[in-house]
Design a protein around this nucleic acid. Sequence first.
DNA 1: GCAGTCAAGCAGGACA
DNA 2: TGTCCTGCTTGACTGC
Length: 195
Amino acid sequence: MEENMCKIGLGLRIASCHQEMPPAKLHFLFPPCMKEEEKKENDQKVLFKKENTETTVQPKKNDKHKNDKEEEEEEEEEEEKGGTRKKLRLTKEQSSFLEESFRANKMLTLVQKHELAEKLHLLPRQVEIWFQNRRARTKLKQTETDREFLKKWCESLGEENRRLRREMQQLRFHAEVDKIKAMRVCPSCVKFMHG
DNA sequence: GCAGTCAAGCAGGACA
DNA sequence: TGTCCTGCTTGACTGC
């Protein structure tokens, strides 16, 4: 039982839903609260752009292109008005590469961080945050797995405890019966019975 | 670096 | 079929 549960516990692994995710749609420069039609159009534009350029869309902080300052200012204005920034979604390739790196190393050195960032066209800070989040979520999953394991173990111990109590009760009962039986036999027979 | 949190994005279900 | 709601995932930030 315990062994089985151990196997269950060890068999569980952390899986990322990234793998099942559709290609990332990166469109954080567009205004928030778009209508459905606009959204679709933008998605198409982004996908088109992605397919044709094969470059990763960078977060605002990292962009060094011509109109970025204007866009950043607009975005800041948007934020000031109460709007919100669009969120970056990593591409499948970026995610899987980060996953691979994470499997190899749970912690990053400064050099590794910069190398990864350069390779994936991300900011070192983004790589750092990704690893931080990944560690936290791995830990969370592990805690949940441990909790489930302990819960099952606890249940099985409770069951075993109840079984042993029942068994003990039966043994006591039989001991009592034997005692009574022995009391009913006359003393001269006792000698005969026990040889 | 970690724990806690926020918020964007997305998927799936309910409903008109 | 489109829209709304809800829950989940995940990138990013903050405080310690």
